[in-house]
């Protein structure tokens, strides 16, 4: 943990160059999107919005992969392929999630998570 903090504070003084500069901006964007998604997941009570927040988190990661691939490791296309896998898996996850939400809507007549509290003890 201590080392990690040291690394992060040392980040500014590193010789990043032109590539590093452009990449830093993209990382800031994707990190911001990631945490907006996380914030949305924890504050929103509507199931569909929560699902959208999760998709936002996954897509912010896609930006990271593509950017790292283009700026740092352009000789192979690993990052881009990974993001295609993420898109596919995210679609599968969304399908399952929508099925669960529809089933809940049928029984509860609501898609608000605050109404779904049978397990609270």
């Amino acid at each position: 943990m201590i080392e990690l903090l040291f690394h992060i504070t040392a980040f500014k003084s590193l010789p990043l160059g032109e590539v590093g500069g452009a990449l830093t901006h993209i990382i800031i964007l994707s990190t911001a999107l990631f945490f907006i998604g996380m914030y949305g997941l924890f504050t929103r009570r509507n199931m569909i919005t929560m699902l959208m927040s999760i998709e936002l988190m996954l897509n912010s990661v896609n930006i990271n992969f593509v950017a790292f691939n283009k700026y740092l490791y352009p000789d192979k296309m690993d990052g881009i392929f990974f993001s295609i896998f993420i898109i596919a898996i995210a679609a599968a996850e969304a399908a399952v999630a929508i099925a669960i939400i529809i089933n809940l809507y049928r029984t509860h007549k609501s898609i608000d998570v605050d109404d779904v509290t049978d397990l609270k003890q």
Binding site: F34, G37, T107, V116
Partner: peptide
């Protein structure tokens, strides 16, 4: 149903974190 929803939300949330970790 509720357990399924909860599992999904937590599971995909942790997947998001896993992916961010892999990206970094």
């Amino acid at each position: 149903n509720e357990a399924g929803l909860k599992y999904f939300l937590m599971g995909s949330f942790s997947t998001g974190i896993l992916l961010m970790g892999i990206a970094l």
